[in-house]
Lab assay of single mutants.
Amino acid sequence: TIEDAIKKLLKLAQKGQPYTFGDFTVTSEEEAKKLAKWLKKQL
């Protein structure tokens, strides 16, 4: 689910690992949080 993807994304971001989700490449926890907010709006 999208919720699971968001959780995984935040965990990876906390470890400092870049994470690619579709067109987004997230390289920081701050970016992960922005992406998570955006994804929730898409639901």
Rank of each mutant, 00 (worst) to 15 (best):
residue 25 T to F: 10
residue 21 F to L: 06
residue 5 A to S: 01
residue 1 T to Y: 11
residue 22 G to E: 11
residue 11 K to F: 13
residue 34 K to N: 04
residue 4 D to K: 07
residue 26 V to T: 09
residue 10 L to H: 03
residue 23 D to R: 02
residue 8 K to I: 11
residue 12 L to M: 10
residue 43 L to K: 04
residue 29 E to W: 12
residue 20 T to D: 11
residue 3 E to N: 06
residue 40 K to Q: 12
residue 17 Q to A: 07
residue 14 Q to H: 07
residue 34 K to Q: 09
residue 31 E to H: 05
residue 25 T to P: 02
residue 10 L to W: 10
residue 37 K to Q: 10
residue 21 F to G: 05
residue 2 I to M: 07
residue 33 K to I: 13
residue 8 K to R: 07
residue 32 A to Y: 07
residue 36 A to G: 03
residue 17 Q to D: 09
residue 13 A to C: 15
residue 22 G to H: 03
residue 11 K to H: 12
residue 35 L to P: 00
residue 28 S to K: 02
residue 30 E to Q: 07
residue 39 L to C: 00
residue 36 A to I: 14
residue 37 K to V: 11
residue 4 D to P: 04
residue 6 I to F: 04
residue 11 K to Q: 14
residue 14 Q to N: 09
residue 8 K to D: 06
residue 33 K to C: 11
residue 41 K to Y: 10
residue 11 K to D: 14
residue 41 K to N: 11
residue 28 S to L: 04
residue 22 G to S: 10
residue 40 K to A: 09
residue 24 F to E: 03
residue 29 E to Y: 15
residue 30 E to F: 12
residue 15 K to F: 12
residue 30 E to I: 08
residue 30 E to C: 14
residue 5 A to Y: 14
residue 33 K to P: 01
residue 8 K to V: 10
residue 23 D to H: 08
residue 22 G to R: 03
residue 33 K to H: 10
residue 37 K to D: 14
residue 5 A to P: 01
residue 33 K to F: 08
residue 4 D to R: 13
residue 12 L to P: 02
residue 31 E to S: 11
residue 27 T to K: 04
residue 16 G to T: 06
residue 32 A to P: 01
residue 9 L to W: 11
residue 17 Q to V: 15
residue 27 T to D: 09
residue 38 W to A: 02
residue 34 K to V: 07
residue 39 L to P: 00
residue 43 L to I: 06
residue 8 K to Y: 10
residue 4 D to T: 08
residue 15 K to Y: 11
residue 23 D to N: 10
residue 34 K to S: 07
residue 22 G to Y: 14
residue 27 T to F: 12
residue 7 K to T: 08
residue 11 K to R: 08
residue 42 Q to E: 06
residue 3 E to Q: 13
residue 9 L to M: 10
residue 16 G to I: 11
residue 30 E to S: 12
residue 12 L to V: 04
residue 29 E to F: 13
residue 2 I to T: 02
residue 12 L to E: 05
residue 38 W to G: 01
residue 8 K to E: 14
residue 37 K to C: 15
residue 15 K to Q: 09
residue 8 K to G: 05
residue 33 K to G: 04
residue 36 A to T: 05
residue 29 E to S: 06
residue 38 W to V: 01
residue 6 I to L: 10
residue 3 E to C: 15
residue 3 E to A: 09
residue 2 I to N: 01
residue 40 K to C: 15
residue 9 L to S: 00
residue 35 L to V: 04
residue 19 Y to P: 09
residue 40 K to D: 08
residue 6 I to H: 01
residue 31 E to I: 06
residue 28 S to C: 09
residue 41 K to F: 06
residue 17 Q to M: 15
residue 9 L to A: 02
residue 9 L to T: 00
residue 2 I to P: 06
residue 11 K to E: 14
residue 3 E to I: 14
residue 38 W to Y: 05
residue 25 T to D: 02
residue 16 G to F: 14
residue 25 T to C: 06
residue 25 T to R: 02
residue 23 D to Y: 14
residue 26 V to L: 03
residue 24 F to Y: 05
